[in-house]
């Protein structure tokens, strides 16, 4: 299992989702991807996209420094 980071701050949905989609395609099941975003829509869209593709959102949180979504790669 490896851990990776993705910076999607400053982009509007659906761009953060597209970035997640493209990055996850390169990772292996069990890998962890931490996504940083700024568009509030990402807190809905990234988990929704992960659900339909069989990935697990471990945490989704919003703080003063932005949005952070931690994803465990599934079998797709």
């Amino acid at each position: 299992m490896s851990e990776y980071e993705l910076d999607a701050t400053g982009t509007l949905c659906p761009i953060p989702v597209i970035r997640v989609q493209d990055r996850l395609a390169e990772l292996a099941p069990g890998d962890i991807l931490t996504v940083h975003a700024s568009d509030p829509g990402a807190t809905h869209d990234i988990p929704a996209w992960c659900r339909v593709h069989g990935h697990t959102v471990q945490t989704c949180e919003e703080g003063d420094d932005g949005i952070r979504v931690v994803i465990e790669v599934g079998h797709g």
Binding site: G41, T43, H44, D45, A48, R51, V52
Partner: peptide
């Protein structure tokens, strides 16, 4: 997109869902 509308203060309460993703979830498809 709902998100573009949601930029404005008065639209902040609108649902921030992506309709295409919503449809995918309703239909159980990727």
């Amino acid at each position: 997109e709902g998100h573009t509308h949601a930029i404005r203060n008065k639209d902040r309460d609108r649902p921030k869902r992506n309709n295409a993703l919503w449809v995918a979830e309703q239909l159980g498809m990727k």
